[in-house]
C-alpha cells in the first residue's frame, strides 16, 4: 500500500513534469536529485503548523548540498 509520503511525492513529481517547471529547472540548471531530497526534508515537517524548524532544515539541506557538490 502506498504511504501518504508516496502519494505526496507522486503529486510533486507530477507537477515538476509540467512545462513551466521543466523550463524553470533547465533555465536555472537545478539538480532534480537535490529537488527530490529537499522535498523529503519538507515531508518530515508536514504535520507542523509552525514553520520555523522546517524552514531551517529545508534551507540548510539545499545550501549544504550545493556547497558539498562544488
Amino acid at each position: 500500500m502506498k504511504t501518504l509520503n508516496d502519494i505526496l511525492r507522486e503529486e510533486f513529481t507530477g507537477i515538476l513534469g509540467e512545462e513551466e517547471f521543466v523550463e524553470m529547472i533547465a533555465r536555472n540548471k537545478l539538480d532534480t536529485g537535490v529537488i527530490k531530497e529537499a522535498f523529503d526534508v519538507l515531508l518530515e515537517f508536514k504535520y507542523q503548523a509552525v514553520p520555523d524548524r522546517g524552514k531551517t532544515e529545508f534551507e540548510n539541506y539545499i545550501i549544504n548540498t550545493i556547497k558539498s557538490d562544488k
Binding site: I15, F21, L30, I35, A38, I63, I66, K67
Partner: peptide, 20 residues
C-alpha cells in the same frame, strides 16, 4: 553565492507547492 543558487531551488518549491 551559494545562497543565490539555493534561492532558485526555493522559488521552484514555492511555486509548485502553491499550485499543488
Amino acid at each position: 553565492i551559494v545562497e543565490e543558487e539555493a534561492r532558485d531551488y526555493i522559488i521552484l518549491f514555492s511555486k509548485t507547492i502553491a499550485l499543488l
